[in-house]
Simulated assay, not measured.
Amino acid sequence: MRKGFREMLDEANAEIEAVSPDEAAALLDDDDTIFVDLRDPREIEREGNIPGAKHCTRGMLEFWIDPDSPYHKPFFASGKSFVFFCAGGWRSALATKTAQDMGLEPVKHILGGFTAWKQAGLPIEPAKKK
């Protein structure tokens, strides 16, 4: 039987930690926490970003996390905590579950994503134009 995205989200949400935008914002100045933006570059260009967030498109996440991958990014092996976010919290929920399954911890995601972050009036840095 085919599994739809809603079932996959329900399964992920049952196993991962989610934080509100305000709870996430309290971690912004924590040197032991890395925010990871999973949105497409066009979304970031349009909307801006959470200050200091690293960018990793959802399609590269597994390759960047795995130290055996030729695409591995050392910040994922830093031993720090990770807060994932996307536009609305769906991609980040699935990414958090994937990262957790790969052994990356601690990891959590922002409920409602960047949209909820903006609606809460939390800090945003404009996108850097290329």
Rank of each mutant, 00 (worst) to 15 (best):
A26V: 11
G59F: 06
D40N: 02
S92R: 01
V83C: 10
P126D: 08
G79W: 10
Y71I: 01
A25S: 13
I16L: 14
F75A: 08
A26Q: 13
A120C: 08
F76V: 06
K97M: 09
S92N: 02
A18F: 07
K3G: 03
I34L: 10
G112C: 02
F82M: 01
D30Y: 00
D32P: 00
D37S: 00
R91I: 00
E23A: 15
R42Q: 14
D68F: 11
E15D: 14
A95H: 03
G48A: 00
E43Q: 03
M102V: 10
A93S: 15
K80P: 02
L94W: 12
C56Q: 04
A116L: 01
K97R: 11
S20L: 01
G113W: 00
P126V: 12
P123W: 10
K108I: 03
D29T: 12
H55G: 03
W90G: 15
L61Y: 02
D66F: 06
R2T: 08
E17I: 15
D30A: 01
D10W: 09
S69Y: 09
T96L: 04
K97C: 02
K130F: 08
W117P: 05
K129E: 14
I50W: 11
L27Y: 10
A26F: 07
E17F: 11
F35D: 12
K3N: 06
I16N: 06
G88Q: 07
I110G: 01
F84G: 07
I124C: 08
I65K: 04
P21W: 11
K118V: 08
K54M: 13
T115R: 06
G112V: 03
G88P: 07
K80N: 01
M1K: 13
L27W: 08
G52A: 13
H55Y: 04
P70W: 10
H72T: 09
A24K: 03
F84T: 03
A87R: 07
G79D: 15
S69W: 09
L122Y: 01
L122F: 04
C56H: 07
M1I: 12
G113Q: 00
P123M: 13
F84H: 10
P126S: 12
K128A: 14
F35K: 15
R58P: 03
E105G: 15
V36F: 05
F5Y: 14
Y71E: 04
H55N: 02
K118S: 01
P74R: 12
M1G: 12
P74N: 10
I44Y: 04
I124T: 08
N13G: 05
L94C: 12
V19E: 02
K130Q: 06
P123G: 08
A87V: 04
A87Q: 14
A95C: 10
R42E: 08
D31N: 05
F84P: 07
D29L: 07
G121Y: 05
K128C: 14
F5P: 08
I44K: 02
A18P: 04
A93G: 13
C56A: 09
M102N: 11
E45L: 11
G112Q: 04
P70E: 08
G48Y: 00
R39L: 04
E105T: 15
Q100P: 04
M60H: 13
P106T: 13
G79F: 10
A77V: 11
K129R: 11
